[in-house]
Amino acid sequence: MSKAGFETRAIHAGWEPDPSTGAVIPPIYATSTYKQDGVGGLRGGYEYSRSANPTRAALESTLAALENGERGFAFASGLAAEDTLVRALCRPGDHAVIPDDAYGGTFRLFDKVERVWGLEYSSAPVSDVDAVRAAVRPGQTKLVWVETPTNPLLTIGDIEALAGIAHEAGALLIVDNTFASPYLQQPLTLGADVVVHSTTKYAGGHSDVVGGALVVRDLDLAERIGFHQNSMGAVAGPFDAWLTLRGLKTLALRMERHCDNAERIVDLLVSHPAVSEVIYPGLPEHPGHDVAARQMRRFGGMISFRHADGAEAALRFCERTRVFTLGESLGGVESLVEHPGQMTHASVAGTDLEVPDDLVRLSVGIESLPDQVADIEQALA
């Protein structure tokens, strides 16, 4: 299965048809505990569903297969995955480097939770290899944490180059692959040590489940994460795992449509007088275009743009769309619009990570393209 195509792995990895019934889809194992065949006699390694659950195990195996990793771990949310990872790999007094335009929830986790615990951090632009190198503290930095593309400014980091910087310093490279999804980008094959996902987004794909994931290629690292996953307990429940598995089966098809629609909407925005800047890695003028073209299959379904008439006009645009629903999150089949400065990234207001107040972020769904285009045009009019 490891050599099969992405679409085949998305459908078949992690589960064989049930030998007793022939069921081709994993059932939802809604159980908290398991009968043991004598003290310590576990059936298939299952004893308690915080430690392991067959539905979650199927999801974790599928995620590992899609990211070309050795082990996957499914969590109750993306932030639960991030917190578990930090606690597994760092100790008070250690240091991490994070993006200077990190997702607001990630920034809040590092600044308000991990920093109080004793972890120090610095921020640097993921697109600037020299800046990341300068932010690393040899002997103290344990994690170089990047998003590529970043949320919401769609900055691109060179994963292979950043892996080299992290490893030279004895640190690990962590890549949040949520915006790209495993279909468009596999960071582990480029040298990353851990991939992070909010599976709420493109992996689940239908805005009906919250979840997170980690995928690694080193088994010793997997043991450390697995211990903390079980000890901290923020695991994905069986129904959430089942919904995410269902979403992954159509990920390739959905991502192609997300990309198709996004590229056409970018064309519209670039030529519109009410738009001062379009931020999309597929544009040749995007500073990270060449790197994105090298490490991504396509450029994704996320678009950010700046309204030429300023912050109030950006807010009005967000309130006027109809096909694009005003709401947080991203990566679902439906199109979403948001104002990062007052919504997903309100936590970075007043800091060095503050985003422009005229910025609008679009998560382009898979609706009919003419309907999407007409909605953008009327909201900009």
Score class of each variant (00 low, 15 high):
residue 4 A to N: 12
residue 10 A to S: 14
residue 11 I to E: 13
residue 12 H to N: 09
residue 13 A to V: 00
residue 14 G to M: 07
residue 15 W to E: 02
residue 25 I to M: 12
residue 31 T to Q: 12
residue 33 T to S: 14
residue 38 G to H: 04
residue 40 G to L: 00
residue 43 R to H: 14
residue 44 G to I: 05
residue 44 G to N: 07
residue 45 G to R: 03
residue 48 Y to V: 07
residue 52 A to S: 13
residue 54 P to S: 03
residue 54 P to R: 02
residue 55 T to A: 08
residue 56 R to H: 06
residue 57 A to G: 00
residue 62 T to V: 09
residue 64 A to D: 03
residue 66 L to K: 00
residue 66 L to Y: 02
residue 66 L to V: 02
residue 75 F to I: 10
residue 84 T to D: 04
residue 84 T to N: 13
residue 86 V to I: 13
residue 88 A to Q: 11
residue 90 C to D: 03
residue 91 R to E: 15
residue 92 P to Y: 10
residue 96 A to T: 09
residue 96 A to Y: 00
residue 99 P to W: 04
residue 99 P to E: 00
residue 102 A to V: 10
residue 102 A to I: 04
residue 108 R to G: 14
residue 117 W to A: 06
residue 117 W to D: 04
residue 117 W to P: 09
residue 119 L to T: 05
residue 120 E to W: 07
residue 126 V to E: 04
residue 128 D to E: 15
residue 130 D to P: 02
residue 134 A to Q: 13
residue 135 A to V: 04
residue 137 R to W: 03
residue 145 W to G: 03
residue 146 V to S: 06
residue 148 T to R: 06
residue 149 P to D: 07
residue 149 P to H: 01
residue 150 T to A: 00
residue 152 P to S: 00
residue 156 I to Q: 01
residue 167 H to D: 02
residue 167 H to E: 09
residue 169 A to I: 08
residue 171 A to L: 05
residue 175 V to M: 05
residue 181 S to E: 01
residue 181 S to V: 08
residue 187 P to W: 02
residue 188 L to K: 10
residue 190 L to P: 02
residue 198 S to R: 05
residue 199 T to E: 01
residue 201 K to Q: 09
residue 206 H to R: 08
residue 212 G to I: 01
residue 214 L to A: 03
residue 224 R to A: 13
residue 226 G to N: 02
residue 226 G to Y: 01
residue 229 Q to R: 15
residue 233 G to V: 03
residue 235 V to T: 09
residue 240 D to S: 14
residue 241 A to Y: 00
residue 244 T to M: 08
residue 244 T to V: 13
residue 245 L to C: 05
residue 246 R to N: 11
residue 254 R to H: 07
residue 258 H to N: 12
residue 258 H to R: 06
residue 258 H to M: 10
residue 263 E to F: 08
residue 272 H to Y: 11
residue 274 A to S: 13
residue 284 P to T: 07
residue 284 P to I: 12
residue 287 P to L: 09
residue 287 P to F: 09
residue 293 A to T: 12
residue 294 R to N: 08
residue 295 Q to T: 14
residue 296 M to F: 15
residue 296 M to D: 09
residue 298 R to G: 14
residue 298 R to D: 15
residue 299 F to M: 12
residue 308 A to S: 14
residue 309 D to G: 14
residue 310 G to E: 12
residue 310 G to L: 02
residue 319 E to G: 14
residue 325 T to F: 06
residue 329 S to F: 00
residue 330 L to A: 13
residue 331 G to P: 10
residue 340 P to D: 06
residue 345 H to Y: 04
residue 345 H to G: 03
residue 348 V to G: 07
residue 350 G to E: 12
residue 353 L to D: 00
residue 354 E to Y: 01
residue 355 V to P: 08
residue 355 V to M: 10
residue 359 L to A: 11
residue 359 L to C: 08
residue 360 V to G: 08
residue 374 A to Y: 02
residue 376 I to Q: 00
